[in-house]
Amino acid sequence: MTEQPDCENKTEARKLAEEYMLLGGRRKSKIDDNITDVRKWEDDPPEAESFWTGQIDPLDEERRKEVEFFLPSINNP
């Protein structure tokens, strides 16, 4: 069973992930055995890249993993 982030953090993490995707972000998450990883096969548009480096990269690892959880999954076409 995958452990969900708590509700308050999930809301903020979801907002960040959604904003990134609205900007055209192309990173996708890979979740396997409760380990989240992000894959990037295509370059992001400049706005999405800037958002990722300015808003998501600076987060501590736990918070960044919460955001990554809400990215589209490579397991779902």
Results as ranks from 00 to 15, higher is better:
E66Y: 06
E3Q: 13
R27D: 08
R26V: 10
R63M: 07
N76C: 08
D6L: 02
C7P: 04
M21V: 09
P72E: 06
F51M: 06
I31A: 01
G24S: 09
L71G: 02
F70C: 04
C7Y: 04
R63I: 00
F70W: 10
R27W: 00
D57C: 07
W52C: 07
D6W: 01
F51A: 01
G25T: 03
E3L: 11
K65S: 13
P46D: 08
N76T: 14
K65V: 01
K15A: 15
Q55N: 12
G25Y: 03
K28D: 01
S50W: 07
L23I: 09
N9Q: 13
D43I: 00
Q55E: 15
D60M: 03
V67E: 06
D44L: 04
T11W: 04
T36M: 01
D6F: 00
K30N: 13
E12Q: 14
P5E: 12
P5S: 12
D60H: 09
R63P: 00
F51C: 02
N75S: 14
V67Q: 08
A17Y: 11
P46H: 03
E3W: 07
M21K: 10
Q4C: 05
L16C: 08
A13G: 11
K28R: 13
N76S: 13
W41L: 11
R63L: 03
I35T: 14
K30H: 13
E47A: 15
E47S: 13
S50H: 12
K28W: 02
P45M: 01
L23N: 09
I31Y: 00
E47Q: 15
